[in-house]
Design a protein around this nucleic acid. Structure first.
Length: 821
RNA sequence: GCGAGGAUGGCGGAAUUUGGCAGACGCGCCAGAUUUAGGAUCUGGUCCCGAAAAGGGAUGGGGGUUCAACUCCCCCUCCUCGCACCA
């Protein structure tokens, strides 16, 4: 079937859109609409999984344009990062060569699809005009105490030879890059951090307002921030040193029989000194810390520990409690030390059984007694406090607060809220990133690079990109040697680069003012467009980027640079596209590729295929069959429009004066119009397209294809089709109006509220809840009238026979149910 | 283990917001038309039992509320995703 010259049409209108700058952002939006699709890491070819994302964004962008909104629909490149650098090492080419090749490839694919971006606002994060503002923002964060350096155990990827943020370590302790997936090690290093924990509570509270986000993402973020309320209780080391310990269960305080310290907590190094246990403790810690994190923290692993030879005093009972080092205690949470309550905490129970530590029962269930020796597991549910001094008899849930008050009054503890969220480690020992704008001077210490010296340029090429366990830039003499801005003496630049998630934390703001040379963006420009009206991207960013960009937006709000506190109200996470059961992937060369697909079937076909197959948030298994239906749909449109003969000169419609058949068509048109618009607004593109298909079938069957109302319907249908199959719609539009501009500069009229329902309606009649007949009544029929017709219906009458009618329920326009006995 | 979401024809999915004709739309399949043939196209049909009509059954399983339940409530099974020794 060669009747539909798909590529010819598509290329024509893609060129037209570009030349006429149809998707250029209006400078002074009156009715703003900001559609943002997460930008891409340009790392190779583009598959249908990518395409799905961009088609969703483009569809809503085009619909809003037709509705008269001033739309901002930008795109850009998340261009710094490891794959470019690894490619550079492998092929010995500068990372920027590889990166710009990839960008060009991606851009070609996006243009093949005809996505309507405003390319004048393109943002590329590896260019100095972008990353200088990463540096500028870093300096502002530094001034506000939100960027700091500390020594800490950090996640180290031995293959990438760099540290990673917590968010970049997978659940099973591997490097987040799927092509690397090397087990992460812990290494003690001095690194730069962003103090996101200062915003932990705000970020948590803010989630409540994000009602347009998927529930799953909100829950994930709540868990990731992980707020817990409790108390820091102060025990005492045998030499008098205070030993604070965090607990959420102070009601079990009388049940403490030991303390446990993390092997990587600072105190662990010194605690066993001068005891006979010193050597064993040292060996134990060394062994545990050498284990890859995956093995060490694997759930269900048997707990291990070692006695330190030291004791602590219980704050209330003054009992002597042995102090252990235990591998299940985390150094990075709380104080790195926990109180062991084997009776009421499962981990402590297992540990106590293994090392023969005493078990005390201090909470009992209301209905039975617990005997320590008979316990097979810890009793963790609420109950009544026992063996707890003056707290005996108190319900444990009430005891929590009473105990905290009691401890606070005596200065033995204080109420505390703890978060699981850690500060964000942003320094990387790699080349291909934003240089950290700091200078290390032997005399003045750490000195920020003055604003007027920005950007600190990344040297465009270096001799050897291969990392050797320390920063690549440290070995680049002409970069690393500089003068101290304070004392003008010789000094060294910070050799690290920033995590690429810094780049993506504010790109949504740069798009609003992409060419600003004085600021990352002008507040008045950002405020014109923020918040993002629809943000579209993958759910894999739930606890990474989607927290970081909220964090940045809040900091920028506090700096007075943006009015909003949250960057986006509505978030759509699109489902993965898989092929033969496996997620499509560029790096694994597994997928259906945009280029060949568009060459064969066309861009409109690709768009409809991904939009029609399933709702956007659902995962999608690609199959060639799903292309058949939409391809047929496009051909049917084409054939219909080619078969209808000349357009009447006047297609004005006076709805009230239409003949019956025409009136029916007009009503169906309005019903379709309403459904398509409302479904698309709700991101139910699959049912919106279904409605268009249904209406096309109506158009096929309509007898008088030369009537004005028919042409009116064809024209409206074209407008409704435009967001979904923009190339074909544009082509058809220009047949109606050869001299006018783009269909996307037109205005989609409102549907006609007065013609949404037919003059008669069909009412199903149930008897005792079972469907027994259907009656046709005028639209305005009252309950009495419907009842009269229903009772006259033959089938209904036979069913009722001589039974008595108990009651009749009528739901206007929906159903009538006759209850008989 | 904790948390979130889900289970509807041979398949992808509608209807769940607001309880009101379950299976829209599409794929596949069947029949007819057209065509030299194939393909394409057009028209119609397509949940199950029942030859058919009548009727009955059916939304993972079991119970409940209701005139009426895919939809609400309780219990169970299974699936997907996230977090996972966070004290």
């Amino acid at each position: 079937m060669s009747e539909y010259p798909v590529r010819e049409i598509e290329l024509r209108w893609q060129k037209f859109w570009e030349e006429k700058k149809v998707f250029q952002t209006p400078p002074n939006p009156k009715k703003k609409y900001y559609v943002l699709v997460m930008f891409i890491y340009p790392s190779g070819d583009m598959h249908m999984g990518h395409a799905r994302n961009y088609c969703i964004g483009d569809c809503i962008c085009r619909l809003r344009k037709l509705q008269g909104y001033d739309v901002l629909h930008p795109f850009g490149w998340d261009a710094f990062g490891l794959p470019a650098e690894n490619a550079a090492i492998e092929h010995n080419i500068p990372p920027w060569v590889w990166t710009f090749d990839s960008i060009n490839l991606c851009k070609r694919n996006l243009k093949l699809l005809g996505i309507g971006y405003d390319w004048d606002r393109e943002v590329t994060t590896c260019l100095p005009e972008y990353y200088r503002w990463n540096q500028w923002l870093f300096l502002r964060f530094y001034e506000r105490g939100l960027a700091y350096r500390k020594e800490a155990y950090v996640n180290w990827c031995p293959r990438c030879q760099t540290v990673l943020a917590n968010e970049q370590v997978t659940a099973d302790g591997k490097c987040y890059r799927s092509s690397c997936a090397t087990p992460i090690e812990k290494k003690k290093l001095t690194q730069w951090f962003f103090k996101i924990t200062d915003y932990a509570q705000e970020l948590l509270d803010g989630i409540d307002e994000l009602t347009g986000w998927p529930e799953s993402v909100r829950t994930m973020q709540r868990n990731w921030i992980g707020r817990s309320e409790g108390v820091e209780v102060v025990f005492q080391l045998d030499d008098g040193t205070p030993l604070p310990v965090f607990t959420t269960r102070p009601d079990t305080l009388y049940g403490v029989t030991f303390l446990a310290l993390a092997p990587d907590a600072p105190l662990a190094e010194s605690i066993a000194e001068n005891t006979p246990y010193a050597q064993r403790v040292k060996e134990f810690c060394a062994r545990v810390l050498l284990q890859p994190e995956i093995e060490r923290i694997a759930a269900g692993k048997e707990k291990e520990g070692v006695f330190t030879g030291r004791f602590a005093l219980h704050p209330l009972t003054r009992e002597r409690l042995p102090i252990y080092i235990a591998d299940f205690v985390l150094a990075g949470y709380g104080t790195g030390m926990v109180m062991g309550v084997p009776g009421h905490d499962q981990r402590d129970f297992e540990f106590a059984r293994k090392y023969n530590l005493p078990i005390k029962v201090v909470i009992t269930p209301p209905d039975r007694k617990l005997l320590p020796d008979e316990l097979t597991e810890a009793y963790t549910a609420p109950g009544i406090m026992v063996n707890s001094g003056e707290f005996d008899g108190t319900p444990s849930e009430e005891g929590i607060n009473r105990m905290i008050d009691y401890l606070e009054r005596r200065g033995l503890g204080r109420r505390k809220v703890l978060y699981r969220l850690k500060d964000w480690l942003i320094s990387r020992q790699r080349y291909w990133g934003t240089p950290i704008p700091m200078i290390h001077c032997e005399r003045c210490g750490i000195v920020p690079v003055p604003d007027e010296q920005l950007p600190v340029l990344l040297p465009p090429t270096v001799k050897d990109y291969k990392p050797k366990g320390k920063s690549v830039l440290a070995g680049v003499e002409e970069f690393i040697n500089t003068t101290c801005p304070k004392c003008l003496g010789p000094a060294k630049r910070d050799p690290d680069t920033m995590d690429t998630f810094v780049d993506s934390s504010w790109y949504h703001l740069r798009y609003t003012d992409p060419h600003n040379e004085r600021l990352p963006f002008a507040p008045e420009e950002a405020n014109r467009w923020l918040p993002i009206d629809e943000y579209i991207g993958g759910i894999e960013h739930a606890c990474g980027h989607l927290i970081f960009f909220r964090f940045f937006t809040r900091v920028l709000h506090d700096m007075g640079m943006v009015a909003v506190k949250e960057p986006c109200q509505v978030l759509h996470t699109q489902g993965m596209v898989s092929l033969e059961g496996k997620t499509m992937s560029s790096s694994k060369r597994h997928g259906v590729w945009v280029g060949p697909f568009v060459e064969e079937h066309g861009a409109d076909c690709a768009r409809l295929a991904v939009l029609f197959a399933a709702p956007p948030e659902k995962p999608l298994e690609w199959s060639d069959e799903m292309v058949t239906g939409v391809k047929r749909f496009l051909s049917r449109i084409w054939r219909l429009f080619n078969s209808v003969g000349p357009r009447p000169s006047d297609i004005g419609v006076a709805p009230e004066r239409l003949a019956e058949k025409e009136r029916e068509l007009y009503i169906r048109l309005n019903q379709t119009h309403k459904k398509v618009v409302q479904d698309a607004e709700n991101f139910q593109f699959n049912t919106a397209i279904a409605a268009l298909m249904e209406f096309l079938n109506v158009l096929y069957l309509f007898p008088d294809k030369s009537s004005a109302v028919y042409w009116f319907a064809l024209e409206r249908f074209t407008l409704l089709l435009a967001p979904f199959a923009p190339h074909l719609a544009e082509e058809l539009w220009h047949r109606f109006y050869p001299d006018r501009g783009s269909i996307f500069s037109e205005r989609l009229p409102e549907w006609d509220e007065n013609f949404l329902s037919f003059d008669t309606m069909e009412i199903p009649v149930q008897i005792n809840g079972k469907l027994r007949g259907k009656v046709i009544v005028p639209r305005q029929a009252t309950e009495e009238e419907v009842k009269k017709v229903a009772l006259a219906d033959k089938a209904v009458r036979e069913f009722i026979a001589d039974k008595k009618i108990q009651r009749v329920i009528y739901v206007a326009g929906r159903v009538m149910n006759i209850v008989i006995s």
